[in-house]
Structures are given as structure tokens and as C-alpha cells.
Amino acid sequence: MTRAIRSELARLRNRNFILGGIGLMAALALMLTTIIFVTAGERVMGPGEQAVTVETLEAADGMFVGVQSSFSMLGIVVLALWAVAVTSDYAHGLIRLLVQAEPGRLRLLGGKIVALAGFTCMASLVTTVLLLVVMPGIAALAGVSTGAWTDDLLHTVAVGYLNLTLAALLWGIAGLLVGMVTRSAGIAIAVGIGYLLVFEGLLGMLLDSASRWLPGSSFSTIAAGGTADMTYGTALLVAAAYACAAIAVAALLFWRRDITA
């Protein structure tokens, strides 16, 4: 599988993909966090949303609160990146060259997942570093005290990075699945956004208690490091089950499907 990983990494080294992917994720994280800081305690919260108070932002993990409370938007970006990486192989007909060169389709898929996971870890790292560098300034502008941020900073940053990365990887795996099912980047992204903003949102309004078990909610719970509705451990188990199911379905589809692109 090492060859498949190296081959996928060579394709991901595409400048547009790196700048578009990492840049978009980091910029969006910064923008969302800034909005949260500037409007803390003022925003009208939607159904299921928890109010972000100034006290929350001033806590030790305050710099990550913005990302955590609006993680689903970042999740859509990661979903789109993974979906594009999968569907571009079909769109350009590259898939027939790849499968001809490496008929072990599960190896190919495994290589793609590992390479994209590496890329996602890198994007999360850049986002975390950016938050670390920029957020004290934004907090000062928003009048949020950052005194507690330096208490056990290393641990806070490590946990924040880990949760951000895990949640991003889970959204990425969702993108892998919709990309593999639809084989079209546009449709895959539309399905992802439609599911998050429409389907899961509506279910959240109708079935408030059950909605926490849905994929998007459990991924967001991981990003937040656990919530009052669901513990971190439970969210990890639920999300792991979704991830395993998504990878299994994607692998089965790829293994069985004719390469006619």
C-alpha cells in the first residue's frame, strides 16, 4: 500500500489543492472564530445551538471555542476536499490508469485514505497554528481576556488539535463515501451540504434528543471535546461506527464496481 500512498500524495501535491484545501480551512476557521469572539453573548442562537458567552471564551480552551461551536461549516470544507479527491479520478478518467497499474483496489483505496488523512492532519495543524498566533490579537480587539489561555497551554493546544483533526477526519470519510457513491464532485458536495443544513437540521428540530446520534452531531461533539448531551467517549464510539460503516460501503462499491470512466 506504500506505493498507493506515495502515488496519491504526488497527486495531492497539486498547488491548487493544497492552497485551496488548507487555505480555505484555515481562513474559514479564523473567520468563524472571529465572528464568535466579536458577537459573544449577542448572537441569537438557533435550535440546538448553545450560547457562547464571554466567560466561555476566556476559559483555558477559549481559542478553540469558535471552531468547536461552528465545526460543521469546517466539516463541509473537509467533506468537499475528500469528495473532490475521489471524484477527480473519475472525472479525468485517471481511475482506469490507476486500477490497471494497481488492480488491488482495496490497496488503492487504502492509499488514498491514508494520504488524504495525512493531508487533513496537515490542514488541521496549519489551522491550529494560525489560531494560536492570531487569536490573542482578535481576543484583545473583542475585549476578551486571555489570561487563562496560557494555563497549561501545551495540553490545551494538543487536545484542541486532536479533537479538530479527529472531527475533520470523520467529515473527510463522509466525503469519501458520498464521492464514491456519486462519482461527481458537485453532486457529492451538494449532498453533503443538503444533509447537514437541511436533513440533519430538520431532524434536530423534530427529534431534539435523537439528533445527537446523527453523524454531523456526533462529529461536532468530538470537535467540542464532548457536550452536555453526549460525552466525548460516547461520541467517539458513535462516530467510529459511522466511519467504519462509511469506509466499508465505499470499499465494497469500489471493489465491485466496473471501471467504465
Binding site: R11, R15, S88, I95, R96, L97, Q100
Partner: peptide
Amino acid sequence: GALIESPAFLPSL
């Protein structure tokens, strides 16, 4: 080695 139907590449690479 095979060339199937049309050449397939990532255009930006």
C-alpha cells in the same frame, strides 16, 4: 502498459 480510450491525467499537474 495501456492507453485506454483517451489519455487520462490531472490537468493541473
